[in-house]
Amino acid sequence: MASETLAAAVIGKVTVTPAEFRLVAFDAHELAALVAELAEQFGVANPIHLIVDEATPLAKLSAELDATSSDAPLTIRAESGALENMKQLTTFGRERAAESLGRMLLRARDRMRDDFADAPPDLELTLAQNAAWDAYCAGRLARRGHRVVQQRWRYNYRNRFGFTDRADEAFERLWAADDLGFAEMVAAP
């Protein structure tokens, strides 16, 4: 159980900070368990540290991998809005959290590939690169049985690449793909 003296909640190789939330009704252990479950599903064996910023309702996410090996520490940063139930703000939303964290884990797994060596760190990605990577991850999440609204990601992609047939075709290719390198993934439509 979480206690005030703990700085983080730990389940297996997953650590969640903070251990106790003050501004949102999240349970660090529930979060850690979810990350562990997703990591197993996506074959991410790295030690994972999830850092949640509960002070903001925004939903920015980033993943940082220290090296490309399977034992390199992976740090995921999430603003609380990325993990909450949008129908009951400040409460935990498992479906939304799974979708957010699943995308970060898939990104981390991508980064372990040689053909992602040139990918800039998450916080240095352009808005367009982010949109392309999100579409690529969301498509794979959907095929793994997660509830993902395809149109949400299509709209996000269109906002970065244009409201054109060409952009839509590029989105469909990303959505259906399973084995892309970074250059292919972010190539302009």
Binding site: V52, A55, T56, P57, L58, K60, T90, D122, L123
Partner: peptide
């Protein structure tokens, strides 16, 4: 809900915003 868009702790939000 006392959270504010600017947030308060050291996460990705600064860079993003």
């Amino acid at each position: 809900d006392t959270r504010v868009p600017g947030g308060g702790s050291q996460t990705s939000s600064k860079k993003a915003s």
